[in-house]
Design a protein around this nucleic acid. Structure first.
Length: 106
RNA sequence: UGAGUAGAUCGGGCAAUCGCAGAUGCAACGUCCGAAAGGAUGCAGAUGAGGAAAGUCCGGGCUCCGCAGGGCAGGGUGCCGGGUAACUCCCGGUAGAGGCGACUCUCAGGAAAGUGCAACAGAAAAUAAACCGCCACUUUUAGUGGUAAGGGUGGAAUAGUAAGGUAAGAGCUUACUGGAAAACAGGUAACUGUUUUUUCGUGUAAACCCCACUCGGAGCAACACCGGAUUAAGGAGAAUACGUUGGCCCGACGCUCCUUGGGUAGGUGGCUUGAAUUAUGCAGAGAUGCAUAAUCUAGAUAGAUGAUUGUCUUAAACAGAACCCGGCUUACAGAUCUGCUCAAUUU
RNA sequence: GGUGCCAUUGCCAAGUGGUAAGGCCAAGGUCUGCAAAACCUUUAUUCCCCGGUUCAAAUCCGGGUGGCACCU
C-alpha cells in the first residue's frame, strides 16, 4: 500500500478529480501514470485523536481486502457519521464507492 | 448490617488466522530511486501507548545565545521546620474554620515606614467628629458650652458586659472577658502557657508598596553534521558609529548589517541506560535517603496496536507517546484490597 | 509538538474595583401627499463558564470551554 504524502496531489484530486459520496465516506479519484496510491483524510471536526486514528485504521483495513485498478490516485475523506460506524459499515460503504467509480477489479 | 472517611492497586484477559512499526539475527553484497548524502527491497522469532500519554499551569535536565558577569527595571514565592536536581510540589507541626466523629479545608508575612481607596447612605469613613438626643447657662420657637450613654446609616463607627461615679456623661475608676506589650518557662522554630503592665488609632497589600528569599533569554520546528542550489537590486555604518547578548544601562565580543525580489529547502544525528524499573534490607514520625541483587521495557516522522472468530462476568469509561523526567490541574464506566469513625442489632 | 492573543446588545466596539459609553442595525413616534434625510424614545441583567479575594468584581487571582494567529 503506497500512501500519498504531498499536499499538491490532494489539492489536485479535490479540484480536478471525480467523486462519489456515501453517508459516512467521500471518495475522490484521478488517473496518474504510475502505481495506485491512497490518501486518507480525517479532519479534526470528527473527533479526538483516538476516534480519528480508529477511522483511519478501519479504512486502511477495508482497503486491504479489495483489489483496485492500477494507475489512480485515490483519496478517501471521512464524514461525521464515520465516527459511529463499525468495521462492516465502512467496508460496505467503501465497496459501494469503488463499484460506482468502477475502480474495483473482479 | 448500614452510613461515612482516608489511602493503595487494576483499567479487560486468553487462544487462533490475516495485517502494521522499528530494532536484532540470518541471507544477499545484487536490484531499484537519487546529483550526492542516503533510502527501499527477502526470511525468522520476540517486542510494541497512559493513569492521566491530555491541559501546557509550575520546576529541572539537555541544546544554543562568547562567558552566563554587574546594576536598574520587571516577575515569582510568602506561618514554621524538613525532603528534593528543583518547584506554585510533598511530608510533619503551629494557628484559624467546618464536622457528633474518623477527618477535611486555608494565597496564613507586614496596615504603628509611607501613599492611595472606602461609591450610595450616614452628623461623621480616620491627626476624629457633634445631626437628633441628654445636661448646664443665657438675650428662651433660639444660641453658647459640656457630653459618646441612647437613636438612626452602613460591610465597617475607636473593645464588650455589669457596678461605681457625674449636672449629663466618659476606661474617669473597679471586676470579668477580648486585644497589645514586656518578663519568665517549654519548643530548633512557627507558637503555647503563666505572671505583670496598659485603656488599647477601622478595613483593604489576589491596591501601590515594605521586608525576606529567588529568577539571564529562547526552545528539539532548539541545535549539530553531510550534501546541493543561489548570491540579483537598493540602502546604511566604519570606531562619540553599527550589531549581538529579544526591557534598559555598564561590561564583554565581532566586522559587517538591513530591506525587497528570485531560487533551493534533501538526508542523518539529536532519540532513549534513565534524578530508570523490580525485589530485599537498613535509617527516619513521614516525605524520603542509603546499600545490595536482577532487568533493558515504544522510538515513529503524514506519524506504527487494527480486523475477524471462539471463550470468560458485561461487544467495557476517559482517552493515543512525538526530546526526557518530577509535580499540579482537568476527564473517567467499573472492579478489588486495607486502616479508621459513627449508628443500630446480637453476644 | 511548541509559543502567543482574544471572548462585553443582532454587528463594530469603549470601559485600570463603586452598578456598562458611543456608532450601525432594528422597533415605535414627529415631519411628508408618500419616501429619504433629520429629530425624539426604546432594547445588555448569566459582561464565555466555574470557584476564590473584597463591603462590593466585566475589571483582581486560580481553573476550565471555545475561537484566532505565528514557528515548519
Amino acid at each position: 500500500m503506497i500512501t500519498i504524502k504531498e499536499n499538491k496531489i490532494f489539492k489536485k484530486a479535490y479540484y480536478k478529480g471525480k467523486k462519489e459520496i456515501a453517508h459516512n465516506l467521500v471518495l475522490y479519484y484521478i488517473p496518474n501514470n504510475g502505481d495506485t496510491k491512497i490518501g486518507i483524510t480525517v479532519s479534526k471536526k470528527i473527533g479526538n485523536a483516538v476516534t480519528r486514528n480508529r477511522i483511519r485504521r478501519l479504512v486502511r483495513e477495508s482497503w486491504r481486502t479489495f483489489c483496485v485498478k492500477e494507475g489512480y490516485d485515490v483519496i478517501i475523506v471521512a464524514r461525521t457519521a464515520a465516527a459511529k460506524s463499525d468495521f462492516y459499515a465502512i467496508k460496505d460503504a467503501l465497496f459501494d464507492l469503488l463499484c460506482k467509480s468502477e475502480l474495483i477489479l473482479q
